[in-house]
Amino acid sequence: MSETTATTTAAPMFEIENLHANIEDKEILKGVNLTIRKGEIHAMMGPNGSGKSTLAYVLAGHPSYEVTEGVIRFNGEDILEMAPDERARKGVFLAFQYPTVIPGVSMANFLRMAVTSVRNARADAAAADGGEAKRMAPREFRRLMREKMALLKMDDSFATRYLNEGFSGGEKKRAEILQMALLEPSMAILDETDSGLDIDALRVVSEGVNALAGPEMGILLITHYQRLLDHIKPDRVHIMMDGRIVQSAGPELALELEAHGYEGLRARFAPDLSPVVAAERA
């Protein structure tokens, strides 16, 4: 338990307070509170449509969502007004639940641009703090890309393909983790990165995540399944329901859910969404 005390005293990365967000005037997030500290791994579970991806998008700065109330601080800084690219350059990474296909944009080209902008921003920030500015040379980028692709057991041919075009579901997820490995974010939000992965791929991807995880990094894992949590051990597990976190506990919560499902929680925290409650009322 001494470990737990150590982590709770680490500096907070994400501080989310009373976050409300709308899409097309419909409220999806209804007051989310969550703090993720350096070195912590948080799992977010919850039924379909409860707002998990919405939270991920809002943290990454998706322009379609309107934050109506609350704050998001990242490393102590209010990021609500920041464009998504600025957040990414500050170290926030979102692995998409449904990665976007962008025709005609080659993977290699895209990765080079992403890596140079993120890493150069980081190098410049380090230099501003009196450190050394280490901008990345093209040769180094190619070496790094090959190395990370090998780590994720991805074929070289991926680099020449168009961004996610014709990628299988599992390949897309692997490509998301490749991007994470290249960008080395300090805060990663992985939205159902495990869905669509076969058993071997799940292991490879989990190893990729674990290789990055460490005392300086925060991770938010959105998932429906315990099996991912067998590979990546969370410090905390949260359950989102109807736009709120209704329960937070240690890793045992995920096992409990696996055994009992959401119905009990739903009846307690979101009775309007519960078919059982509806039946009783009728």
Binding site: A60, F93, I102
Partner: peptide, 20 residues
């Protein structure tokens, strides 16, 4: 949004998309 979420500025992202 996808490109921006990877740290690429909006104007650069637009360039990539048009070139694509």
């Amino acid at each position: 949004f996808y490109l921006q979420a990877r740290g690429i500025e909006r104007s650069e992202a637009q360039k990539l998309i048009v070139e694509g």
